[in-house]
Design a protein around this nucleic acid. Structure first.
Lengths: 206, 206
DNA sequence: CACTGCTCATGACAAACGTCATGGGGTGGC
DNA sequence: GCCACCCCATGACGTTTGTCATGAGCAGTG
């Protein structure tokens, strides 16, 4: 691990404080070099295309496009580049979305920098790494019992919009919307759609 | 700034990655020394009492007790210690709560480490610092138009509970609850209580 | 003291919502 | 080809909400 070509890393996080600090810590690792930094989704994509990193470390929540979206685009445009997600809130749903997008690493920000460096190497080697606790959460939350439309309608109900508005935005009749909301709520075990939205959010089903 | 006694800093953030990285960056500043780190609210309090820092840099969201609660306790138990909050999401309400708790600095995590160090010095010198953008948000959100009971009832409605449950938990009649919710929603300009809850949250009125 | 504003309540009405039964159309599996 | 399951809709029903008018008790203010 001395004379080898260093592992090129892209760092994307909208929080300057964290991104800078992270870059500084990763720079301490001899075999890693941070070749680019980005503060938003689109910027991350542009930087990746310009600097062609081996591994892209993406924050989940960024302006423009979140980490998973960036990972999806990256997979298409820069297939050799491995992607991993670092996040503060480990919702089960995010993990699922990320894995579906071809992300190979998923870690909470509670890990240490040294550990993160190890995981970057693991991911670069072609292996996967998912934080055990997050994985356990995802398993215990189970798979979503909701159908595609139920989930969609529930999402439209998220900000407290009345049925009429949801119906219009989904191009459905009001009756249909109420049916979907009703079945979604009963599947989730909620008394009304508002608590249903909350619970579905917590379990990563929307 | 060479022979002076260094400025003692406590760092509290539940995200190990960020806390460690931050400590490393602040260590680069000659006049600052991180004397303690904590990963939770209670731990932050204990560490502060043990190490008596000059400035406590607290994350807003931590397990156990959030940054503002810690600041409140700190103010009582360690009055000479200045407190400041660093946060990812700058909700106007948080800022108001923080200032009321005697916090002297309030910054988003989008600032650079160098800037943070400057602000730590500013706060230590007895001055206040509030991120201009967050301050503007707080001002534009204005003061809450809600009466005490309206806010209380709205809060009980936060998780989507039906009126009957709210009435029971508030020891009010259902009719009264509906009146409060109605007037609160109309004051806020929301169509129903659920959006009212959301908007009130965003503006820091609950 | 009159006035204003908050608190709490009741009753009543319309609108919105949750639930159920029912049915047609589509897709995929066995 | 049958069956299961999803998608979408309609109509009907009872319940929950939102809104309004009204009024009593109780501060605090000028």
């Amino acid at each position: 691990m001395t004379t080898e070509r260093p592992l090129r890393v892209l760092l994307a996080d909208d929080e300057h404080l964290i991104r800078g600090a992270l870059a500084a810590l990763l720079a301490l690792e001899e075999d890693l070099v941070v070749v680019a930094e980005a503060a938003s989704g689109p910027e991350a994509l542009a930087m990746a295309l310009a600097h062609r990193p081996d591994v892209a470390v993406l924050d989940l929540q960024m302006p423009g496009a979140d980490g998973v979206k960036v990972a999806t685009s990256l997979r298409a445009e820069l297939p050799h580049c491995r992607t991993m997600i670092v996040t503060s809130h480990g919702r089960p749903g995010h993990l699922k979305r990320a894995l579906a997008a071809g992300v190979r690493g998923f870690v909470p920000k509670t890990v240490s920098a040294r550990r993160l460096a190890e995981i970057i190497r693991t991911v670069h080697a072609g292996n996967r790494y998912v934080d055990p606790e997050l994985a356990a959460d995802a398993i215990s939350a189970g798979d979503s019992p909701l159908t595609a439309r139920e989930a969609e309608v529930l999402e439209l109900a998220a900000d407290g919009a009345p049925v009429a508005e949801i119906a219009e935005r989904a191009s459905l009749s009001q009756g249909t919307v109420r049916n979907y909301l009703s079945s979604a709520a009963s599947k989730i075990g909620a008394e009304n759609r508002h608590t249903a939205v909350r619970l579905a959010r917590e379990r990563g089903w929307v």
